[in-house]
Design a protein around this nucleic acid. Sequence first.
DNA 1: CCGCATCCGGGGCGATACTG
DNA 2: CAGTATCGCCCCGGATGCGG
Lengths: 214, 214
Amino acid sequence: MRSYGQYCSVAKALDVVGDRWTLLIVRELLLQGRCRYTDLRNGLPGIATNLLADRLRDLERAGVIEREDAPPPIATTLFRLSDRGERLRPVLDALGHWGVPYMAAGPAAGDEFRSQWLAWPASTFLVDGSPDGPPVAIELRTPDGDIVVEAAAGVVRTHPGRAQSADAVIEGDPHLILALLSGNLELDAARGAGLRFEGDAAALTRMQPRVTAS
Amino acid sequence: MRSYGQYCSVAKALDVVGDRWTLLIVRELLLQGRCRYTDLRNGLPGIATNLLADRLRDLERAGVIEREDAPPPIATTLFRLSDRGERLRPVLDALGHWGVPYMAAGPAAGDEFRSQWLAWPASTFLVDGSPDGPPVAIELRTPDGDIVVEAAAGVVRTHPGRAQSADAVIEGDPHLILALLSGNLELDAARGAGLRFEGDAAALTRMQPRVTAS
DNA sequence: CCGCATCCGGGGCGATACTG
DNA sequence: CAGTATCGCCCCGGATGCGG
């Protein structure tokens, strides 16, 4: 990116990560950890492949990501964040938190979705309604992968994969899942819309929208 | 900006503030408060005037800033952040903190500088070396305005303007001021380079670089 | 002078095709 | 699978004009 030419730490940061798509690439690496080129493409619907290659080159030169040749049997290239890149997490957290209100209206026409993107709405918008209760885990199964949403000790967190013991399992359209989690859709209505829900409905009410004047 | 078309709060946030120059406009409004168009231009060296006008329109439509007609005798337009815009402060804080290491090497050739930009290096990179001591204020006088750096109760903060009672006053080249504050330049050397320092040198050593593995 | 609008050249970006 | 190559387009940068 063309430098702003300003001796200011915000401008210098944007010189490095202010290009279009750059912070979304960091998002995917924060969410997924080490990725193949194809994994990144899949997590970044809409990006032009030459742009992804360009950005990965830029980010590597800037010391934000590192390229790693996978061990022999695999024969592929993996990309991962460097320590410096991992330190961008607070930036993504702040941006993701600020952007949550835009999710309330539902996806725009043609919006793509990946289950791992629920991490920010879940961990910054939802709050554990019963901080003193035992931990609760809800497993989400979407067409592009599974993630676990956990409420424990007052906070809600997410991570990819399956839960060891899920209190509830939700399967179906990701938009419906978010509507259900955020309280914009009742369980009965969600079921009527095709969402499959198994397990303890109380696990659902355990997670509540954080009360903020946004 | 063209939407990323992703139902993700980070992407939605970048749909609004991801355009070039946009976050720097927010930076200026966070630092300066209400601004005239000309004030913004002055705080954003390098921006094309049509782009500034475009961005201000976009930000107003997005509800991030608000336009305000100044009271009669003044007859000008003022721009200020809305509540929603003020909530971008954590984003700028995170970015500014992440970018501080890029300041260490000094300004690049042709880099512009404004004194108010010292706010992030001062408040996130410097730390109050004597948390239990009485508050200390250093007044900085640069060609484009004055700012105050205060150390109190363990933290270092800045604000524009003059101090009620400054323990020290530094006047001169902003680059030298930052080098002096960050400990990269000794007081004697700074004086030799043309910096004027008056007051208590202990106020200077009160503020120390935060120890981080950056 | 302040707050823009207009015009124009160059390059970043988007979409698709192609390749080792 | 992991990228290059190519080609338009539109965003951006820089200069200038202009009404209030």
